[in-house]
Design a protein around this nucleic acid. Structure first.
Lengths: 190, 190
DNA sequence: CCCTTGAAGCAACTCCTTCGCCTTAAGCCG
DNA sequence: CGGCTTAAGGCGAAGGAGTTGCTTCAAGGG
């Protein structure tokens, strides 16, 4: 989970990591992200600044690390009994979380301090995992379902592209529209 | 074009901006982006560091500014006489440029130093403009054509999502496939 | 229980970054 | 065309972020 290989995941290293992450979350809430500096976080976490520089490189990579953690889904997508409703509910929930001010900030942070793209990859892996669960359920029910790649390209990608690259609001209607279009192209009306 | 409102676009301000941009491009080419610092760029550009800090805020915003400039398309999309071939050629060209190492670096820089999303918005505006030209040509020819939003959602967004969020290579085949899928859903085979 | 070794603490140094003040010149208006 | 107003750039000092070598600590293995 940490950006650098942690050959000793237990004990002190883990405590330091958690302490630093907690310090970032606390200071973000108290003073806003603008006010964060590495020495400040270090002091709050009870470690020396050089520890943070050595493990994370710089403030941005640390913030990216914390942001990815917060973008991890906490629960499985709700089961509504049918592929269409499952996908609609998940897409609406996903878009709502991601387009909220904190959601946008986490995405921004996750991308900004991510020199090798691994944090961005983790974000899309989270979404792919949720989608996979929904599609597996559909398969269990015997419903025809699109491929996971199709869902990523036609539902997740447009939402995330708009979030990251285009100004302007996004609402649940847009998410539902993407789901409808994807499912109806799966089973043409003809 | 500059991140801060330029109430005096002419004369010295414009010269300083161009000089600083040129210094960034030169030092990037000579020493790599890792080596860049604000004082280094300032020295090369013949300005004082405080000028850069005042106009751009920090190194990342400056690099983002330069990156957006480099992502601006230099020519109109080629005219191949038909919507399908125009879109295919443009999508392939777009994906090839964006997925190249420098292209990926520019996208990363453009997003990283972009606190308010205006640079990201500029990037998508460039793509939308190119798409608009292609669609307008199709309309002139009397060809049925999808809406620009459909092209952005179904062709541009999947490519950019994969570029930014997913590891792994991307090739012209993928771009063509997106175009085919979009056009064939426009005119169902039935 | 000791040994190895990666990680954290410490401290000193470098240099990035900020800020106040002054100077320059762009754009305006008579 | 020539002075006037006012952004914007230059300069220098002060403060703090970021870096590094060395030392100390403790996790995990023998």
């Amino acid at each position: 989970m940490s950006p650098r290989p942690m050959t000793r995941p237990g004990g002190r290293s883990a405590r330091v990591q958690e302490s630093v992450h907690a310090a970032v979350r606390a200071l973000e809430a108290e003073q806003g992200r603008e006010a964060l500096t590495v020495p400040l976080v270090a002091a709050r976490a009870g470690v020396t600044p050089s520890t943070i520089y050595r493990r994370w490189g710089d403030l941005q990579e640390l913030l990216s690390d914390v942001a990815v953690e917060r973008l991890r889904p906490e629960t499985e997508p709700a089961d509504h009994g049918a592929l269409r409703t499952d996908l609609e509910a998940w897409a609406e929930h996903f878009l709502e979380e991601m387009s909220s001010p904190p959601g946008r900030a986490y995405i921004r942070d996750a991308l900004a301090g991510d020199p090798d793209g691994s944090h961005a990859g983790q974000c899309s892996a989270y979404a792919a995992e949720q989608v996979g669960i929904i599609l597996a359920r559909a398969a269990d029910r015997g419903e025809p379902a699109p491929d996971a790649e199709v869902v990523m390209d036609h539902i997740v990608a447009p939402m995330m592209y708009r979030l990251v690259f285009r100004p302007g609001p996004l609402d649940a209607t847009y998410a539902r529209g993407l789901v409808e279009a994807t499912l109806s192209s799966l089973m043409p009306p003809g």
